[in-house]
Design a protein around this nucleic acid. Structure first.
Length: 846
DNA sequence: ATCTCCCGCCATATG
DNA sequence: CATATGGCGGGAGAT
């Protein structure tokens, strides 16, 4: 059926109106379809304005994505049933019904959702317009979509942040579609790295974890301090080279929050290894930057609201999808990146791997060394902050590296004239695939992807991805493949980077089952950082348990998410948690006391770590201060339509170069969380995965550039340290040579699986949307509800609390002692690696 | 009860 | 000054 749907959809698409088509598709569904159409189409809309004839989308109607989604969702049984219900109610009521029914017929809240609205909006414009002359008139659009203009702003602002549209003048925007999307993402990733978002995220997670068990806040201060320092930066709107300044007026408000917030949000995805970002963490980071001080919950709440708005739009663009991260505290809303993998530049690209350029749908993306290269790019002057002088030095070295790297070849693809050498690098240009072909491919890929999802995503993806990934060994960093081809997941699922993860096999584990440890490259640096001393300290006290707890906590705290496929691994933080916990949870309460004590110890340890780390710490931080102003580049295409090229990935070609007027370096602080990192690993039944970072120890990994530049500077973790640590933790019995060496290839598979296991739950993204589309939403019930209003009391969200803790000590050293650790504590106590395995299994499924 | 997030007031920016 | 923008947060629908 699905296939059929797709087919239909596609065809329909050709016609001008996608939605309509889509709706129709459901022929099968019969009634439903009706309702759907109605709702969806603007024209039809019941309430509103009369009929403006809908405009046909200008050029290319083809928007595979949206259609596919819709179709898929349509296919879902759930939706259908709903539709049917709805339908029934509708039929009954239709126009003349009694009041209640009447209401029912009205569009439900969902039908008014920003996500749906955005879909409608996007349906009006082609993903890759052939001309850049697509103008958007806000009034017009608002009218057509029958929504208030305010809502259109929400959409447009986000699109603007991705450079999919740009403001021309008062009520006018130009539609660029996805032509610049990839480049924009590259730029954002770069900026995100420069801002050390990766570290910030880790820090936040770390903090959370710390809070759990520590009461006093001594060490917190440090953390806080770091954190504070890290924040602050004001990051202006990131612009792209060809289109930067529009009206002067526009410039003035460039740094508007929604736009910038959107960019930052995207950056988080691009720099985080798991590519899963929880709203909570995102909100904290975004807030942090603005002002450290007040973190009141209200602010946090507002931020969350905005993030939802942004997320809805990004979801419509299929760049992210909703998922849930499961933690000890429960599941938290999060989003997973499903957009193209962004690689830093590319120079040599090996081939066309078309995928490279054009970011294929998430899964296929190929990790590349490019990431590494990206780092290399010269920094434009934008960054303002830099931490300590020492850091500066690091920066320089990095720069040097970049230069070296840059040399890359280039393909002239876009004109690069403008800016820098970088431009040349566009990786992808290579494969001149006919645009059309490309489109098709993409479309196919999408389809494929979808299908996969339906079934077992991971498996398919792996298969697909592997091949691609493998080819390029060169990119040691990001992709795991190089070393271990086995890790299949990498590409699709996870962030490419994880791929780098190297599994380590532990020879003997108590359970008898061999464990593999994966470290996340990203974290690597962190690990590295740790001083041996620090590592040692734990020993004394450490009984296994304690250690375990710590680990688990850390893990948990950090994040646990699960994503469908890949994710699991990524999150260094959380993975364990899920697995371990489950079984044990029941006992929680009893052990609390124990925990406490342990916690204390842990705290001490941590503190120490921190202190050590601090000294050690050398991360770089850049904060962009000015707007990035890229040199313009023109994208004229040679022949192929620009669109094609772009699609192909050409876009990437010109990496933007930015000349930033303002460049400065500002010292930032380094946040750091070194200690924490270690703990994070995921344990799976078969193996234990450590965050890649930790793995840093492994030689192989070390090179990976995956993460931010910072990482690179630091790396050299000593394997020995790592092993040491592990031993302490109890994961490893004796020194394993294995640790030091990169793992054997064989395991990867296991690993991957395990990683997948995580329980990330994907929400059916479009589900809602589709629902509406498909059927009209809910049954009459809704309507009724409306009539009665209930008093709402503002509720404080739990999240806020967390936040508060987090922020609480901006300047001050201590953080609250409060630990909310309740729930978590329990589990942790006893879990050892041993337990984990079983858990893992459980979890994994979902 | 919590998660989402729509709605639209109202401050600002633009023109 | 009239509008166009868009920050913001109350409060209600969805789960």
């Amino acid at each position: 059926n699905i296939m059929g749907f797709l087919f239909l959809a596609v065809q329909e698409n050709h016609s001008s109106e996608p939605y309509r088509n889509v709706l129709k598709t459901p022929l099968k569904q019969t009634a439903t379809s009706h309702s759907v159409l109605t709702e969806i189409q603007p024209d039809c809309q019941p309430l509103t304005t009369p009929p403006k004839p809908k405009k046909i989308p200008p050029a290319d109607p083809w928007t595979p994505t949206s259609n596919l989604k819709m179709l898929i969702s349509a296919a879902s049984p759930e939706i259908r049933s709903r539709e049917q219900r709805r339908e029934l109610s509708n039929n009954t009521s239709q126009e003349h019904l009694s009041g209640d029914e009447y209401e029912k017929s009205q569009p439900s809240r969902k039908e008014k959702s920003l996500g749906l609205l955005c879909h409608k909006f996007l349906a009006r414009y082609p993903d890759y317009p052939s001309t850049e002359n697509d103008f958007i008139c806000l009034d017009e659009v608002a009218e057509k979509l029958s929504v208030e203009r305010r809502r259109i702003y929400d959409i447009v602002n986000v699109l603007e942040s991705l450079h999919m549209v740009s403001r021309l003048a008062k009520n006018r925007y130009v539609w660029h579609g996805r032509h610049h999307l990839f480049k924009t993402l590259q730029a954002l990733k770069k900026v995100g790295e420069e801002n050390k978002y990766t570290q910030q995220m880790q820090m936040i997670k770390k903090r959370e974890y710390e809070q759990e068990f520590d009461f006093e806040g001594e060490r917190n201060e440090e953390t806080a301090r770091n954190f504070d320092s890290s924040e602050h930066s004001e990051m202006p709107f990131v612009e792209l080279p060809g289109m930067e300044f529009h009206a002067a007026s526009v410039n003035s408000r460039k740094d508007k929050s929604l736009r910038v917030m959107s960019q930052k949000f995207v950056m988080l995805f691009l720099v985080s290894t798991p590519q899963v970002v929880s709203l909570e963490v995102a909100a904290k980071i975004l807030i942090g930057e603005d002002q450290l001080e007040d973190l009141d919950k209200s602010k946090f709440k507002t931020k969350i609201r905005r993030l939802y708005d942004i997320a809805n739009v990004l979801s419509s663009l299929e760049l992210i999808k909703k998922v849930h991260v499961t933690e000890e505290r429960g599941r938290k809303p999060a989003f997973k990146w499903t957009g193209p993998e962004v690689l830093p530049e590319s120079q040599d690209t090996k081939l066309e791997t078309t995928s490279t350029t054009c970011p294929p749908p998430v899964s296929e993306s190929i990790p590349s060394k490019e990431q590494c290269s990206k780092k290399l790019f010269p920094l434009r002057g934008k960054q303002n902050f830099t931490r300590h002088p020492s850091l500066i030095k690091l920066v320089k070295s990095i720069e040097n590296d970049r230069r070296k790297i840059q040399s890359a070849p280039t393909s002239p693809v876009k004109s690069s004239a403008s800016t820098d050498q970088n431009v040349s690098a566009s990786p992808s240009k290579m494969a001149p695939v006919p645009a059309i072909a490309k489109h098709q491919l993409e479309g196919q890929s999408k389809k494929v992807r979808v299908v996969k999802m339906e079934l077992s995503q991971s498996a398919l993806e792996c298969a697909l991805s592997l091949p691609e990934a493998v080819p390029k060994p060169e990119a040691p960093l990001s992709t795991a493949p190089t070393q271990q081809p086995a890790l299949t997941l990498p590409s699709s699922a996870g962030p490419p980077s994880h791929s780098s993860v190297s599994p380590v096999i532990l020879p003997h584990t108590p359970p008898g089952v061999p464990y593999a440890i994966y470290l996340h490259p990203s974290q690597t640096h962190t690990v590295t950082t740790y001083s041996p001393t620090f590592m040692l300290q734990p020993l004394p006290c450490a009984n296994v348990t304690g250690l375990k707890n710590i680990n688990s906590k850390v893990l948990n705290k950090i994040t646990s998410e699960e994503g469908d496929n890949q994710t699991a691994t990524d999150d260094p933080t959380k993975p364990l948690t899920a697995k371990e916990r489950p079984p044990i949870k029941s006992e929680t309460s009893p052990q609390r006391g124990v925990k406490r004590s342990q916690a204390l110890q842990e705290n001490n340890l941590i503190k120490r770590f921190r202190s050590d780390n601090k000294s050690l710490n050398t991360s770089l931080t850049f904060f962009p201060s000015g707007y990035l102003i890229p040199l313009t580049q023109y994208i004229h295409d040679t022949k192929a339509s620009s669109a094609d090229k772009e699609k192909a990935g050409i876009c990437s070609s010109q990496r933007a170069t930015y000349s930033s007027p303002i460049a400065g370096v500002i010292p930032g602080t380094a946040p750091e969380l070194k200690a924490v990192n270690i703990p994070a690993f995921h344990i799976t039944p078969l193996n234990i995965m450590l965050s890649p970072t930790s793995i840093g120890a492994a030689p192989v990994v070390s090179n990976s550039c995956l993460n931010s530049s910072n990482t690179s500077s630091v790396r050299n973790p000593s394997p020995s340290v790592l092993s040491f640590t592990l031993q302490h933790v109890g994961l490893i019995t004796a020194a394993n040579p294995a640790l030091q060496h990169v793992p054997a290839p064989s395991q990867p598979e296991n690993v991957s699986h395990s990683s997948e296991n995580t329980h990330l739950q994907e929400e059916k993204v479009s589900k809602n949307i589709l629902q509406y589309i498909g059927h009209g939403g809910l049954s009459g019930k809704n309507s009724k509800s409306n009539s009665c209003k209930k008093p709402c009391v503002p509720r404080e969200s739990q999240a806020q609390t967390a936040t508060e803790h987090f922020f609480r000590t901006p300047g001050g050293p201590n953080t609250g002692s409060s630990l909310s650790a309740n729930s978590d504590g329990t589990d942790r106590t006893s879990q050892g690696p041993l337990y984990i395995p079983q858990r893992k299994l459980e979890v994994s499924e979902d």
